[in-house]
Design a protein around this nucleic acid. Structure first.
Lengths: 149, 149
DNA sequence: CTGTCTGCAAAGACTTTGCAGGTTC
DNA sequence: GAACCTGCAAAGTCTTTGCAGACAG
């Protein structure tokens, strides 16, 4: 991953644009999350960033992801009640969550916003953001399973 | 609500059907959640059941909602990361969440399962349950707001 | 009467907060 | 140099667990 630093200017610009300082820790955390589409938890970000920044603390991870949300670089969502997850994909999308391997894949379909609009109109609701999490078994896991049967 | 007790036989049957004892606390908790479509949190269930059962404990609420889920009477879902919510509506449905008054309304549309199927087919995913939470402003709140403007 | 359940208190998991020393701009 | 940030430790919130006395079947 020699191009990890490519996102530095973007992160620095986003931070400074809202008056936040571009510290090495924030950049490292931003880099990791922006390049990670596995929807990491705070713990996971901490473990990974620690490899580069051994002194980083979990408190800094939590403070930083809030800032990265605020400057519009990442989104937060919850699958389980006890753990927040972070997502660099800022486009509206659903999540396909494999109950077996725990993988989470993004999935988009223009129909989703159509349905949101239709349901909202029915009850005169002004819809904004939405979360759409679909639980099941991914193709990899089903393939493995059928071999074992 | 003179017909609250009407659901007793249903709750008792569901509990005993899976080998659970039908205690007064469980019936009271089941009654409250089955008749409450405001998607209460554990705390809310606790506060309400306490009015009828002053000695009930939060631990019993938590243990009981897990059992009610297991016997198929209620569902659990999460809007915010820090609080579970419980729902007696066992049909697949979306939630319209008002960011102003915090109300949560159920909403169904047959198209949703069509989209779930379509997205699943595209990536060979076996979809099961899903959560669809849509955030926005409900009609009541928008009406109030436009009066104030 | 036996196995299960309740309610208390303590523990557990994740997240937030307060603050002294260090860093950014 | 001033304001902000980091990392530690402590606190906070929701939820789970362990256990002695109580209850359902």
């Amino acid at each position: 991953m020699s191009n990890l630093q490519d996102s530095d200017p973007l992160i620095i610009k986003a931070l400074r644009g809202k008056g936040y300082k571009a510290t090495p820790q924030r950049i490292a955390i931003g880099q990791f999350v922006l390049h990670n589409h596995a929807h990491p938890t705070a713990q996971r970000i901490y473990s990974e960033v620690k490899k580069v920044y051994p002194t980083v603390s979990l408190a800094t991870i939590y403070k930083t992801v809030q800032i990265l949300k605020e400057v519009g670089l990442i989104q937060e969502f919850n699958l389980e009640k006890d753990q927040a997850r972070f997502d660099p994909n800022m486009e509206p999308h659903a999540h396909l969550v494999c109950l077996q391997c725990k993988s989470i894949n993004d999935c988009t379909d223009p129909m989703i916003s159509e349905i949101v609009d239709r349901m909202s109109n029915e009850v005169d609701f002004s819809a904004g953001e939405w979360n759409f999490n679909i639980f099941g078994i991914c193709s990899n896991c089903r393939r493995k399973k059928s071999i074992c049967d």
